[in-house]
């Protein structure tokens, strides 16, 4: 059933990574992504790869889920590899025909780039698998709080509120789209055949009702929020306060150590 699609990729499990403060997780993920680009040689990248694998194991999220995400962008990985292999023409020539010349350096470069992309995917999936969309939104809102000093406090709140409402209503709208499609199909609407133009035209009976219903929902929701004393971000208090725990400081420390190691590897090797 379409409404069973879980939005976002959160995978509920009990691990220390799941329990980390979402702000810390977000900061660490960003740091980690920087690592990936800082790593300049095979040794540092291998080190990052090992770390990533370790985190995946700690997270207790099935490895197959990560593989699924890699598979989804396999095309990008292959394309990058091929382009890199063709672009780098120094080193021992392994293969040459017509205008194509594959060298050892090119292959190395291709492997290095693919590894980078794969690690990038795994580490960002790790964030979304272990953090709910709500936690993420919350983390973004709170991390951006200092922006209120330059008069952007309300803007940050509004953005976070918009993301929350979008996350709340996406499943509802998916279900509604499903219903409207069935209803128009029952009136003989043909959504599956015809030229591109005809197919786009055939979407009108679905898009118009969907738009109208979204506007109605937005209007209803605004009234409901007003009744619940909503008055923007000012004066609002949150039930769930985020507090950094020992594990958060620890993970931050671990990452700083790793960062230093990578820089050292970059210089040594």
């Amino acid at each position: 059933m379409i409404k069973d699609i879980t939005f976002g990729q959160y995978f509920p499990a009990k691990s220390i990574i799941h329990r980390l403060d979402p702000r810390i997780k977000l900061v660490l993920s960003l740091m980690f992504i920087i690592f990936i680009f800082v790593a300049q040689n095979a040794v540092s990248l291998a080190f990052i790869g090992t770390l990533t694998l370790l985190f995946v194991l700690i997270s207790r999220v099935p490895v197959s889920l990560f593989l699924k995400n890699i598979k989804a962008i396999l095309f990008v990985i292959i394309l990058t590899s091929v382009l890199n292999a063709l672009y780098v023409t120094t080193g021992n020539v392994l293969l040459e025909f017509w205008i194509i010349k594959i060298t050892a350096d090119g292959v190395k470069r291709a492997l290095f780039m693919s590894a980078r992309i794969i690690i990038l995917i795994i580490s960002s999936s790790l964030l979304t698998y272990t953090t709910t969309p709500t936690e993420l939104t919350d983390a973004i809102e709170r991390l951006l709080k200092p922006l209120r000093f330059i008069g952007l406090g309300e803007a940050v709140h509004v953005m976070a509120m918009m993301i929350t409402i979008a996350l709340r209503f996406i499943p509802t709208l998916i279900e509604e789209t499903d219903k409207i499609m069935s209803a128009q199909k029952a009136r003989g609407a043909d959504l599956e055949s015809g030229t591109l133009f005809e197919r786009i035209k055939a979407l009108i009976p679905i898009l118009v009702p969907l738009l109208i219903s979204s506007v109605r929902r937005a209007y209803d929701l605004a009234e409901a929020m007003e009744c619940r004393c909503y008055n923007g971000g000012s004066g609002r208090q949150r039930m769930k306060q985020l507090k950094l725990a020992g594990r958060d400081y620890l993970s931050l420390a671990v990452l700083v150590v790793c960062m230093s190691a990578i820089i050292a590897f970059n210089i040594i090797f």
Binding site: A183, G188, I204, V208, P209
Partner: peptide
């Protein structure tokens, strides 16, 4: 088939056109 709350599937500019949608198809 008339679905629940069928008024939410109306989309045409006029009532006439909306009723004509099925017969036109």
């Amino acid at each position: 088939m008339v679905f629940q709350y069928p008024e939410y599937q109306l989309f045409e500019e006029t009532v006439y056109k909306d009723i004509a949608f099925g017969p036109t198809n």
